[in-house]
Amino acid sequence: MFKGLVKWARIKSPWILHMNCGSCNGCDIEILAALIPRLDAERFGVLLKGSPRHADVLVCTGPVTKQMKERLKRVYDQMPEPKFVVVVGQCGSSGGIYQGAYGVEGGIDKVIPVNAYIPGCPPRPDAIADGLIKLLASIAKGGNP
């Protein structure tokens, strides 16, 4: 019963941390648009937090540049368990058009484990909200997606 309660709480209160790992800023603007009053992410308990220590879901954008690789790892390590990673955009998923560029490491999943991908260049705000809710649904089913 206690386990069920904790699981319910985890699904009901995902606090997100937004991180730009070298994106062109297109996806970041769309993430902010997903948090506006019109879509109202707080309905699902989503809060945007500034500190990695408070966050449950790391929302990353962009291809990981070589500069950003260590920082991304460190921010990921600073988050307390259990933690989830959502990648927004084509570049974050695979490297996108920056694949093979000399300063670019590749997609986010080359550096840290990823739970959900939201494709698009950039994805629509409602697609981002939908991706997050699908992640929550997969947590509800149990196991990692």
Binding site: V6, R10, K12, S13, P37, D40, E42, R43, G45, P82
Partner: peptide
């Protein structure tokens, strides 16, 4: 939230936050 024309959090939201935080890594 209502003053910003949003729907706002559900009734048990603060309790969910509390339980979730208590179950996180130390």
């Amino acid at each position: 939230a209502r003053m910003q024309r949003r729907v706002g959090p559900p009734f048990l939201q603060p309790f969910a936050d509390l339980v979730k935080l208590s179950a996180k890594e130390d």
